[in-house]
Design a protein around this nucleic acid. Structure first.
Lengths: 350, 350
DNA sequence: CGGGTTATTGACAGCGCAATCATCGGTCAA
DNA sequence: TTGACCGATGATTGCGCTGTCAATAACCCG
């Protein structure tokens, strides 16, 4: 398959379908194009009577605004860019669900970008998006490259960093503390009587690092820093990888009696591996996940996990951008949506 | 939060950041704007020397084409629309992953639409997308409303229906036969010695209907039509729902000794429910999923499933559109990417 | 009742790019 | 040599919309 057009590329045939334009609508309603434009974008700026006439003409002609022309003339597109590390991950799926729900009630559209957890790709995508004069930009994470950060700070649109929290956001942010969440989960394991909780993680990224730090901090506070056990891999996370890491942990640290997993896939994999090893999950080995996907509550035994407000973060990010665009200011520009430990049978230890 | 701008909406400040335009690049390279445009879109149309000069100027000025202006002038945007029922579903996540991978090597961008499995929403989204003169359109499924179909047939861009196969596609299609896949899976259960395989499904959509028909056909061919047992719900699929449906099946049809699940989430839920009920999965009760997500192979016991080529479908759909746009014709315009039954312990029955 | 204000509407220009057509120099067969 | 032809390049124009500013009507206060 050719990936770029060649000289032979057929020059596209001129469009046959003639769409209604502002001119058509204006003629139909007996007014000027600019009034039609205003009636559609800022209804309050035209009188009620004219607006009614215009709206009827729009209906009758089935007029749909040309986003390209609008973007060109106004130097501002109706596109909100969303940059996430993965489109296939359930965690970001929920986030997108919240975003798409929220955007449906606005005149904006979303434009997804897939950073593949790669800082250079993210930087490139940020540049491309900013080049198209987006209405706003939503970025997963707070760990943009410094060049990307510089570009973002010169951006003329609202920028929201999501999923995480930092002291110095580019603009606005909404998320929760991964550090605190992991600390809480580790504290729970210790409180339940597990003496040597371990940590497993895949595809170590900055968010994982912060969770790991939270785990370590909780261990240190309990005077158990010497019992901290960590097994990680740079490879992507998956259920199968969870099983692999669990087996690796058992080899490397047979004394570990609980495991805090960096995400739910790993926890599920750990569950299956523990079952294969004939361990009684909950009693002999505690398992705690992260994110609380639907599967965690349904598993047997049910798996403890940290519920993260993914859908809510999506909705909040969009709301913050809309508010900024229409009201000018958002207070507060930083929102901590928290998390919730969902305690279930997998960390019971009776 | 206000959902639409009011008259008070601040008129956006004029952009401060001056970007390089074609004019700037042309001046820098000592040529005309149109040659720059050509050098970027159809490199073969300008001489090597000029092209080199232009490319250098592009580099030096950090020129990025303005998609809005390009779309307006050419009456053709670089956007390929993708309409899927859900962004949070792992199945479509894999599809998107394939699409985003493939699109990265082309000058196009993807614009996602979320139909929420609703025909009216899909129709609306199709209209909106077609209104923006997309370079192509990718639609999940073959069950568009007749109005939507009519609009699509008048579309001036390539259209690919994916995930499924039909006799009369709008334009091109790539997918596999859900009917045949379910038929094969059911045949496998029967061949393995299960005498009364049942079917469970959630959120019945046309694809599910075709799978169900495949199940029924296999049962009928084996002379077991009278043993067909079907439990469904209009609610969305989830692991928890899989457990619920499994329990319902056990009540309604205690003689069922295997279950073909409409998707992997349901199969996982069935697994957990069976374990809760103390059933030996594989021997006493066979479980077969659909899609073969990563979790199926990792589960304990490992779950049999029908592997569907989701990522490949995404890549193929994009390739078909690119080929059509650049070469004019795609042969064949219909591609059956098949499926593969992954037999594992959950349907062993020894 | 007049100057000043506000609300409503319109004329016009231009956003940045690509389609179209024109131009020019060179090649080749007769 | 010549005219048809082709590849390479450029000048002009307009895509459909919105920002700006101007014009008018309606209205206010003292």
């Amino acid at each position: 398959m050719p990936l770029m057009p060649d000289r032979a590329a057929p020059s596209p045939a001129p469009p046959v379908l003639k769409r209604a334009t502002l001119v058509d609508v204006a003629a139909h309603a007996g007014t000027s194009t600019i009034s039609v434009s205003r009636a559609l974008r800022r209804p309050a700026m035209v009188s009620e009577g004219l607006r009614a006439r215009i709206m009827q003409a729009v209906q009758e002609l089935g007029y749909v605004s040309d986003t390209a022309a609008s973007a060109l003339a106004s130097r501002r597109s109706g596109v909100i860019g969303v940059l996430i590390p993965s489109v296939a991950d359930a965690v970001f799926g929920d986030l997108l669900d919240g975003l798409y729900d929220a955007v449906a009630a606005t005149p904006y559209t979303l434009q997804l970008g897939n950073t593949r957890s790669d800082a250079a790709t993210e930087e490139r995508l940020i540049r491309i998006h900013l080049g198209q004069r987006p209405a706003g930009l939503i970025l997963a994470g707070i760990d943009q490259s410094s060049a990307a950060r510089a570009a973002l700070e010169r951006a003329e649109c609202p920028v929201v960093q999501i999923m995480d929290l930092t002291e110095n956001p580019v603009d606005m942010q909404v998320g929760f503390s991964h550090h605190a969440a992991a600390r809480t989960a580790t504290g729970h394991l210790l409180a339940r009587g597990y003496h040597a909780p371990a940590f497993i993680g895949a595809r170590i990224d900055p968010r994982t690092e912060r969770r790991l730090a939270g785990y370590r901090e909780a261990m240190a506070e309990a005077g158990l820093a010497h019992r901290a056990r960590v097994v990680t891999t740079p490879k992507p996370s998956s259920v199968g990888m969870g099983s692999t890491l669990f087996r690796r942990l058992r080899q490397y640290a047979p004394d570990a009696d609980a495991v805090l997993c960096n995400d739910d896939d790993l926890a599920l994999g750990a569950l299956f591996a523990a079952q294969r090893a004939g361990l009684s999950v909950g009693r002999e080995i505690g398992i705690c996940g992260f994110n609380d996907l639907d599967v965690m509550a349904a598993a047997f035994p049910a798996l403890t996990s940290v519920r993260t407000p993914r859908r809510e973060i999506g909705a909040a990010a969009l709301s913050m951008i809309a508010t900024r665009l229409w009201d000018g200011d958002v207070a507060p520009p930083i929102r901590d949506l928290g998390f919730k430990l969902m305690v279930r049978a997998s960390t019971e230890r009776v």
